[in-house]
Structure formats: structure tokens, C-alpha cells
């Protein structure tokens, strides 16, 4: 699952090497904390959060397949 967040994030940003994902669990939900270079924040959030929403939708679909609850948080 973490791999999927990574594939998507790295495909969107200009600075893929700055992409870091931390994993933590809260109340049975796996949370992926996505860190990207400051100048790439817009590339993973998008206007009105459209990109972030699409990213979450795809990751959640992948999680359903594995019967897991996940979320992605973008950390500035």
C-alpha cells in the first residue's frame, strides 16, 4: 500500500527523491504521512485539493482489496 502512495507521489512531483512516506496506525486505520519538497506541495494537493482527493481515492480502493482502512495525510 505504501508503495502505491510512493508511485503516485513520485510521478507527480518534480523532485521525486524528496518523497518520504511514514506509516503509522491509529484506531485500526493505517495512515500514510506523505512528505514532499516544499515547492512540490501544490503538485500533490492541487486546486481545491483535487489531486490529494484522487490520490486518496486510489489508495483507498487498493486498501479495500486487502480489507484495510487507510488514509493519506500530506505533511507540510
Amino acid at each position: 500500500m505504501k508503495e502505491i502512495v510512493e508511485i503516485i507521489a513520485k510521478s507527480l512531483v518534480d523532485n521525486p527523491s524528496a518523497v518520504v512516506i511514514n506509516e503509522k496506525e491509529e484506531d485500526n486505520v493505517v495512515i500514510y504521512e506523505l512528505h514532499v519538497a516544499t515547492e512540490d506541495m501544490g503538485k500533490v494537493i492541487g486546486k481545491q485539493g483535487r489531486i490529494a482527493k484522487a490520490l486518496r481515492t486510489v489508495v483507498k480502493a487498493a486498501a479495500t482489496r486487502e480489507d484495510k482502512k487507510v488514509n493519506v495525510e500530506i505533511i507540510s
Binding site: I8, S11, L12, R50, I51, K53, A54, L55, T57, V58, A61
Partner: peptide, 8 residues
């Protein structure tokens, strides 16, 4: 999900 995948 299809739309999100397409957008990304």
C-alpha cells in the same frame, strides 16, 4: 476510482 486513476 476510475476518474481518479484517469486524472492522476
Amino acid at each position: 476510482t476510475l476518474d481518479s486513476l484517469q486524472y492522476l
